[in-house]
């Protein structure tokens, strides 16, 4: 009896498992495999060849200055954009929740970026950040600030990063706001009445009632957006095009680094370098997710 049920369960799960096997598990394992192949030539005449197994691919990219540039860029994007965008979206979601009348309209407005093409938005942003004609510098000039070269050829690293961060944060708001507003709807209104009776200020209510009761949602968002930020690529392409920065590769991210070598697949071992970088990114992601899980265990209230 039990055995037959097991069989049925496997049968029901089969479509998903087969698809996941083909498109997730196999590539993942294959990436591990490729990353340790020596002198791998995927397109050698007569079939792919390799001379043996080695860890030199990892050594090679860990000695590559460009890889460390990618790590630095990726980490800066992740560690700055994730907390700021969570904070902003939280504030927007809470404010949205307190204006019942126009809520639906604003929700739509805030959700638009989510359904708009990232490359198109990137181009719009690139123009907004233009040194001479851009909206950002125009607004800065109102405040008496000299025009900043954000994305031009001679832009400083921080100026480029600033533009990239603004774009990344803005692009991530929509989904976060959506999750937080639905999370807020799950909080019993009575806690807010009780807090009023308990003479809590608006700030206290936000800090001591709303945030803790929303903490499962905040955890979910912080993990998913951290993973998303570590995989940043689309934003860089959108804002800077294939140069990956105002100067060649100045805003390169880990995924962009992977993609660079993947595109050079004819070269010996290039695919292995790409795989090694991808594996390193995989472990970084796992480590951060675990850390977030452990840290939050004490702070998240379910």
């Amino acid at each position: 009896m039990e055995k037959r049920n097991n069989l049925k369960a496997w049968l029901y799960l089969a479509p998903l498992l087969i698809l996941m096997g083909i498109f997730i598990f196999y590539p993942l394992i294959n990436a591990f495999y490729i990353s340790i192949l020596e002198e791998y030539r995927p397109l050698a005449p007569g079939g792919a060849t390799a001379t043996g197994y080695t860890l030199s691919n990892f050594a090679r990219i860990l000695n590559d200055e460009l890889f460390w540039q990618a790590i630095k860029n990726t980490f800066v994007v992740a560690f700055i954009s994730v907390p700021i965008s969570i904070l902003i979206s939280l504030v927007i979601a809470v404010s949205l929740n307190s204006i019942p009348k126009l809520k639906a309209l604003y929700q739509t407005v805030f959700f638009l970026p989510y359904v708009t093409n990232a490359i198109a938005i990137g181009m719009a942003f690139a123009f907004m950040f233009h040194k001479d004609y851009g909206l950002i510098n125009l607004m800065l000039s109102w405040l008496g600030i000299d025009p900043v070269n954000w994305v031009g050829n001679v832009a400083t690293w921080w100026a480029q990063m600033g533009a990239l961060l603004v774009y990344t944060i803005w692009g991530g708001l929509a989904f976060k706001i959506l999750v937080f507003t639905s999370g807020l709807q799950n909080i019993d209104k009575q806690y807010y009445d009780a807090a009023k009776i308990d003479s809590a200020s608006k700030w206290t209510v936000f800090r001591r009632i709303t945030v803790p009761l929303l903490s499962p949602f905040i955890l979910y968002i912080s993990i998913t957006s951290m993973i998303g930020a570590l995989k940043a690529y689309r934003t860089v392409i959108g804002l800077f095009g294939e140069r990956l920065g105002a100067q060649q590769n100045s805003m390169i991210t880990i995924v962009a680094y992977v993609y660079k070598y993947r595109s050079a697949y004819q070269d010996v071992s290039a695919i292995s370098y790409a795989a090694s970088a991808a594996i390193i990114l995989f472990f970084i992601t796992v480590v951060f997710s675990l850390i977030q899980g452990v840290v939050s265990r004490k702070r998240v209230h379910y």
Partner: peptide, 25 residues
């Protein structure tokens, strides 16, 4: 002081924190 029908105790706070909350405010 108001006691709600289903108490509306803050679920993430301990009994101590719940009672302390109005005093802190």
């Amino acid at each position: 002081g108001l006691v709600f029908q289903n108490y509306a105790l803050y679920p993430h706070m301990t009994v101590r924190e719940n009672i302390l909350f109005p005093l802190q405010n």
